[in-house]
Design a protein around this nucleic acid. Structure first.
Lengths: 399, 399
DNA sequence: CTTATTAAGTCAATTGTCTTGACTTAATTA
DNA sequence: TAATTAAGTCAAGACAATTGACTTAATAAG
C-alpha cells in the first residue's frame, strides 16, 4: 500500500502462544485450588490427560511444581496430587513512598521471605535513587542467604509508587512525588539491578497482592479500594488487572465530589493525607502509625469524627464502584493502621443499596483486605510473578 | 481428589483456538484499516506471509474477504489488497423499548439493510412477544429479498433492552420493563426464530455500534455515555466490551449523586425520562422526538434550563469516567433527538480538568457518537457480528 | 477369593497449524 | 539490460495438542 499510515492490528498467535497459555492455566489452577492431580487438571482446563501430563512433566522439570503422596479416592488408580513449589520463582517488590521506601522478596506462592525498609532523604531522586538501589541489593543478598538458587530464579523487580503517571504535575503535592514521577525510575532500576523492572501505582500493587494472597484470590471481577496516603482503586476485570489506556485507570482519588457548589477531590476527604492534615500530624514521623493506633484505641473525639466523615465518602465510593463495575466483591485495603481500616469498615455499614444486592451472592459486597504498611511492597513483588505466570490474553499473542 | 468442591480453572487452548484467533485478527485488521495486502497483514499481525496466505485463502473461500485490483507501490511485485465482503455475514438486531420495538438487519461491515419498527402493546411480554417475533420475521423476509444467501449467512439475533438484569425489581418503573426483564426472552426468541440469541442492555448495544461503525472504531479503550430513556455507560476495555460479573457493568444511571443531604440517581436528573417528566411529555407519543426537536429549535426556555442542568451532571460524569477508566476517549451517544445531543455536548464544554488532559492525545476527550433512535437496534445487530468475528480472549479458549 | 469395574496415567501414532527457506513473479532503479 | 526490491507461493519441517489402546492400582460385587 502506498500510504505510510501505520496499520493497526492485533497480534496473531502460534503454537508457543498456545503452550504458554496452557502452562499458565495449570499454574493458576494449582494456585487457586491447591493440590490437584493430572486428571483433575485435565477436567478443569478441558485439555486432554496427555497434554496435561506433558505440561506437568515440564513444569516439574522446571522446578515449578512437585508431586505429593498419592491419595486413594475410591475405585481406580490412586491419584498423584501436584502443588506449586514455593521456591520455583522469586521476585522483589519495591515501594517508593513519600518519606520511605520498602522492599520485599516473595516466592512463587506469595510468601514474604525478606522485608526491609529505609528512610528516603528529602532530596528526591537525586539522592534517593542510591538509597533505593542499596535497599534492593540488601534484600537480594538476604534472599540469597535463605534461598538457594534465588538469583537464577529471580524473575523481576516490581516497583510501586503513587500515580498518576505521565501528566504535567499540578504542583500541589508537597512532598516531591512529582520529582519521582518525572524521574526515569524504570531505566535507573533496570540498569542498577540488571533485572526486568515494571512500575505501577500503589493501588494497583495492593490489588495484585489481594489477588495473589488476599481477599481477591481466585476472583476474576474485583475492585480494591485502596486507602493510603492517597486513595485509589485497583481493578481486576475479567481476571486481569486493568490499567487503562495510559496506566492511570482507578485513580479515583482525583474524582471530584460535588457537594453543593464546591467540589473537592475524594482524596482530600478520605485519605490518610487528609487525616494528617486534619489532626496536624507530621507525615514523616516514623511513629505515625503507632500514634494513630493509640488515638483510635482511645476513641479520640477528633479521629472519630474524621472516620465518620471518611466512611461516608467511602460508602458512596463503594456504591459507585458497584454500580459502574458490577464486581463480585469490593475490597477495602490500604497502607494504614489496621485498627483504622477496621473502624472505617465498621463505620461504612450499612452499605448503600445498589445492583450488588443480589440473592445469588457468594462473597460479601465489601470485604476487608490486607491492611498493612507492607501491602504495597508485597503487591509490587507479586507483579512480576503475576506477569510471568498468570493466564492473560497478552501472553498468548506474539511479542 | 475426594472432596466434591468444584475446581476453578481457566480453560486451556489448542490449535483450533490459535487458528480461530488468527482468523479474527485478520478480519479485525481489515475492518479497522480497510484494504490490506497479504504482506501488510503479515507485518501487522506478526504472522508469516505463508500463514496469512493460508488464512486469507480460507476466508476468501468462505466468502468473507475478496481481492481488489492489484496496486503498484514502487519496486517489487504489485500487492493485491483484500477487503471484507459486506455480504459475508448478516445479523439481526432487536431493540425492546418501553413503547415500541425496532429491528434491524446488518451485514458484516455494519451496513443497515433493513429497518422496521412496531408499537408494543401495553400488556407486557404476554402480548408483546408475538409482536416482536412477527417483526423479526418481517425483517428476515425483507433481508432475504435484497440479499441472496442471507439465511445461510445469518449468524444470530442480538437483542437489547434496558437493564439491569437479574435483580429484584424496585417497582418504580412505570412502564413494564420489569415484566420484560423477568420474561424468559432469550428462550422465547431462540425458539421462535431458531437463531442464536444474545441479550444485552441498551447502553452496551449502543457501544457496540460505536465500535463497529462509529467514534470508537478501532479504539481499544473507550467509554460510551449513553443517554436514552435511561442513562448508562458502555465500556470498551482492552478491546472488548466489559459487562462485569453479572452483566450489569456500566449501569451508571443508578449512581447516586449526593447533593447536600439528599441523593438522587443520575438517571433521575439527566435522562430523557427526566426530561419527559420535567416537561410533562407523554413518553408513548409517537411524535415525541419531533416535538422535542421543535422545542429545542425554538430555544424553549424550559428545555434550555433542563439542558443546562443535565449538561452539568453529564460533565461530571465524563470527569468521573475519565478518572476511573483512563480511556482514549469518551463518546456521548444516545437514543435521543440529534439536536438535543448536540446541544447537550455544547453545554457540557468546557470539560472539567482530569487526568485525560494529556499532551499526547490523538482523539478528543469527548466525542459525539451515533445519536439516533436506531443506534441501539444497530448495536444489537452488531453484537452477534462482533461475537463471531472480533478478536477476544474467550474465542481462543476451549468451549 | 476371584472377577468386574472404575479411574489415573502412559505410549505411540496422528492431526492441525504455524514456520522455514528456497523459489517465482513483477515491478522500479541504475 | 541488469540489479534490486517486494509480493506471494511451494514444499518440507517443527511443534503441540489429540486420539485410542494400553497399563496400573484401587474398590465393589459375587
Amino acid at each position: 500500500m502506498n500510504d505510510t499510515r501505520p496499520i493497526r492490528a492485533k497480534s496473531g498467535t502460534n503454537h508457543e502462544g498456545t503452550s504458554a497459555h496452557n502452562r499458565r492455566v495449570m499454574i493458576d489452577a494449582l494456585r487457586v485450588n491447591g493440590a490437584l492431580s493430572r486428571a483433575d487438571l485435565a477436567r478443569a482446563t478441558r485439555l486432554t490427560k496427555q497434554t496435561v501430563s506433558n505440561i506437568i512433566d515440564e513444569l516439574e522439570r522446571d522446578g515449578l511444581v512437585t508431586s505429593q503422596q498419592t491419595v486413594r479416592n475410591g475405585r481406580g488408580q490412586p491419584s498423584t496430587p501436584y502443588v506449586l513449589v514455593p521456591e520455583g520463582a522469586f521476585a522483589i517488590g519495591l515501594q517508593i513512598d513519600r518519606h520511605m521506601t520498602r522492599a520485599i522478596a516473595v516466592d512463587l506462592v506469595g510468601n514474604v521471605l525478606v522485608r526491609m525498609e529505609a528512610k528516603l532523604p528529602s532530596g528526591g531522586p537525586a539522592t534517593g535513587a542510591k538509597v533505593i538501589l542499596d535497599l534492593v541489593a540488601d534484600v537480594r543478598r538476604q534472599l540469597a542467604e535463605i534461598a538457594t538458587q534465588s538469583e537464577e530464579r529471580l524473575i523481576g523487580l516490581g516497583a510501586a509508587m503513587p500515580g498518576p503517571f505521565g501528566l504535567a504535575g499540578n504542583g500541589d503535592d508537597p512532598w516531591m512525588m512529582e520529582a519521582w514521577q518525572k524521574f526515569p525510575l524504570l531505566e535507573a532500576l533496570a540498569v542498577g539491578t540488571g533485572l526486568d523492572v515494571s512500575i505501577q501505582n500503589d493501588a494497583a500493587a495492593a490489588t495484585i497482592a489481594e489477588r495473589m494472597v488476599g481477599a481477591a484470590h481466585g476472583l476474576d471481577h474485583a475492585v480494591c479500594l485502596y486507602v493510603g496516603y492517597g486513595i485509589g482503586a485497583g481493578l481486576i476485570l475479567g481476571g486481569e488487572l486493568y490499567t487503562g489506556a495510559n496506566g492511570n485507570a482507578g485513580e479515583i482519588g482525583m474524582a471530584l465530589l460535588t457537594m453543593g457548589d464546591q467540589s473537592t477531590p475524594l482524596e482530600h476527604r478520605a485519605s490518610l493525607a487528609s487525616l494528617y492534615q486534619y489532626l496536624s500530624l507530621d507525615a514523616a514521623d516514623p511513629d505515625l502509625y503507632a500514634k494513630i493506633h493509640d488515638l483510635v484505641s482511645a476513641d479520640d473525639r477528633r479521629i472519630i469524627a474524621w472516620i465518620e466523615a471518611a466512611a461516608s465518602d467511602l460508602r458512596w465510593s463503594v456504591h459507585l464502584i458497584e454500580t459502574i463495575f458490577d464486581p463480585q466483591t469490593v475490597i477495602l485495603c490500604g497502607s494504614a493502621p489496621r485498627i483504622l481500616v477496621d473502624r472505617l469498615i465498621t463505620a461504612m455499614g450499612p452499605l448503600l443499596p445498589s445492583i450488588a444486592e443480589r440473592r445469588d451472592r457468594t462473597v460479601a459486597r465489601l470485604q476487608i483486605g490486607i491492611a498493612d504498611p507492607w501491602s504495597v511492597a508485597l503487591g509490587a513483588a507479586a507483579g512480576p510473578i503475576s506477569q510471568e505466570f498468570d493466564p492473560r490474553y497478552a501472553a498468548i499473542l506474539k511479542d
